[in-house]
Design a protein around this nucleic acid. Sequence first.
DNA 1: CTCCCTTCTGAACGCGCGTTAGTCCCATTG
DNA 2: CAATGGGACTAACGCGCGTTCAGAAGGGAG
Lengths: 350, 350
Amino acid sequence: MRSEDIAKLAGVSRSTVSRVLNNYPDIPQRTREKVLRIIEQYHYEPNTSARALAGKGTDTIGLFIVSMAERHTGNRIYQNHYFAPIVDTVIDTANAAGFYVLVHTVYTQDDYLKVKQAFQQRRIDGGIIVGTQKDSERIAEICRLDKPFVMIDFDLEALAEHSLNRDTLSVINSDDYEGACEAMRYLIGLGHRRIAHIRGRMNTLSGRQRFQAYETMMNEYGLPYEDSDILDGNFLKNAAYEEVARLLNQARDQIPSALFAANDDMALAAIQSIRDNGLRVPDDISVIGFDDIPISSQFIPSLSTVRLPIYEMSKEAVNQIVNMCTQGTTSFNSSTFPTELIIRESCKRL
Amino acid sequence: MRSEDIAKLAGVSRSTVSRVLNNYPDIPQRTREKVLRIIEQYHYEPNTSARALAGKGTDTIGLFIVSMAERHTGNRIYQNHYFAPIVDTVIDTANAAGFYVLVHTVYTQDDYLKVKQAFQQRRIDGGIIVGTQKDSERIAEICRLDKPFVMIDFDLEALAEHSLNRDTLSVINSDDYEGACEAMRYLIGLGHRRIAHIRGRMNTLSGRQRFQAYETMMNEYGLPYEDSDILDGNFLKNAAYEEVARLLNQARDQIPSALFAANDDMALAAIQSIRDNGLRVPDDISVIGFDDIPISSQFIPSLSTVRLPIYEMSKEAVNQIVNMCTQGTTSFNSSTFPTELIIRESCKRL
DNA sequence: CTCCCTTCTGAACGCGCGTTAGTCCCATTG
DNA sequence: CAATGGGACTAACGCGCGTTCAGAAGGGAG
């Protein structure tokens, strides 16, 4: 079933059918209805490829997930507390807007080619890229394609470095720095003076921002901290568990009364480690995390943390892409979404 | 950059370029290399739309997730323990095979149209559909399109009903029945004679199979059970918690010594409920679940359960689709994958 | 009745590629 | 030497649609 068949059945020319489908204003109501009836009746669907070839878009956006995990290690991405809700929201929002979503994982440097290809092959009209460890060099290449593109969590400085403030590019960040400051102020407000921090990976923007907030706040409030109070984590549980165990392995009065972990996974591991070393949370040590992953609210004790506005950010990303694609609006945008301090049971007044 | 540009640069005709790209045998090595060099040099990528229009496929498969949740309730699909690893594996496997994946959620009856459309609009070469509550009527419509199609977890009887044993259709199931039997045999082998069951939704295949296995095993081993031993769950925590509380609200010696829950979520809720009623797991009551969701291994006590071969099934689904798409092989297939009994701490010898 | 303007329609071209039928050239054979 | 054959290529058509431009049909004014 092609548009020509519809045209014949409706007794008009093919171009009239096309005009009806594309909402041209100069089609009289009678003709329009007649054509639409035939289309309805025969369940006609325009061929996307032909449409795209003739200049229309594909009504498809790409969602690229940059991860340092390895392909085929099984089930890593969507069980990741950070990626899962993004994928979820993006697909949901896009589908509701009548767009299809092409999801692709990016593990290796070569996989970045796939992103470019998706654009060059005209598979997608626009793209969203997420992931903590993006290669700004490769990203720069992709941006040079000059296609509607939104990045979630990306260091603006890296952009400037490649002078890529193009009109088709948008960046959506969460305000991790301010969120981390809030967490620190909360701990300090509870009377804690000796506060430790488990860092995330320092090659990620969020890792750096959260750590930076820790230092700034400690300094601002004139609180002393030593190198040993800064634990070198990597966002993962194992290392955090070990590092915390090492922290606890000193004179009782040398142990900090509070711990700010750069993410919930490490915070939970820290609590385990603290327990296994015979101390209690929050009675002996207060722990606060970052991310508000689902399990944090169910853990015992439930974890105080900072919620990321993932849902809002993802939705905004799709909206921007869809606008760019449909209206052809090209506007550089850099929005920062506020986090939210979630107070639960894992912190206690000193 | 079009193939014609490449042709000019290489000093050949456009069709020669096309033949090189499509591995035609009658191109001498010299010409082939020359063309490939130019392609490489100018980063030429064939336009997918034009390609699809000319008869080639799109190298894209659709992944449709049928869920009864509601759109825009935020973050349901990929945080679902069942869907997440499927999405994960499908995307990973397909990407590794050079295929793109279009992910789409199906919430309402109308959304099924989107599935049909994706095919009719030639967006995808083949599709995978997953979800527990498929509408076999709609599925039948989709199958009638006669496109490569794989369903994960689908009742074969429903297929027969619509007489749809077409060559392009495959069904991949997990052997829930046998898995549930194994779980029951394990409990019985531990000496339990009074065993309760919390059912899943009876309008799902897995819900029915797991329940059926319970009844069959109880009968086979001549164990008595009463209506009150069969709790009406719906795969969700809340109802399970309540139902179990009701079960425990009777004379101590009337309470079953073991409980087989139709999924892990309900099993975990049951353990909570049992605890809240002053009994212990596994000392007073043994509990076994089904699914082996990630949290089950970390729960205290860790949950004995039945692992679903989700990874294997998803991978097989992609392989079948890819084969059908590339080789044009059309073979009806119905494979059943075995489950695996995972023994942990939540069950104890009576 | 003619002219012009508005409203509507269709023929034709182009999008970029796959493929078929056919051409050209050179080596081989009778 | 002519005829044959095959290897290496190309011209041309078709895929299904969007869009432009010219022109038809209708309607009102002069």
